[in-house]
Amino acid sequence: MNQLFFKNILIFSALAIGDIVFVNRLSLGTFIAPYIYHFFILQLPVRTSRYTVIMLGFLTGLFYDLIYNTGGAHAAAACFIAMLRIIVLPAFISVEDKDNNISPGIYTLGQGSFLFYAFILTLVHHIIFFNLEIFKISSIPLTLLKASLSSIFSVLLIYLLSLLFYRKKRK
């Protein structure tokens, strides 16, 4: 329990530093604005209680709202994908995975399913966030394009980070 707790604090801090210092400063044009912090919500262990997942989603978002001055847009988006995670995650894991309390990642879920899982949640997160940020109905087509392009980059970054920092577990 304690080990899991510290591991997650470490992942949260590493993602915060990576997101604020590095990813947020990438200039990839007007339509590509990737984020990686929501990986924290994606990778929470599968047996984390539903209350905790939603609460952590909200608090993570709120933390980035305070840093990026975005009101509550990050909080709303992150809380929403926390809820979505509760709904979609059972489709990706087996009973055995649940017993082992795995953290969803490229090696635990398998590359294909993890990328699919990450892309769905990232896309929804970006669509909600960009729309709440600009808060204008007339720019929805534009934000949809921005969200799709950004999602591709975010998932790519998350994939690369997973390759770098996770090791394949021997069975």
Partner: peptide
């Protein structure tokens, strides 16, 4: 929590 977030946005 979503309501709180929207309140913060508004």
């Amino acid at each position: 929590l979503e309501a709180v977030a929207f309140f913060l946005i508004l």
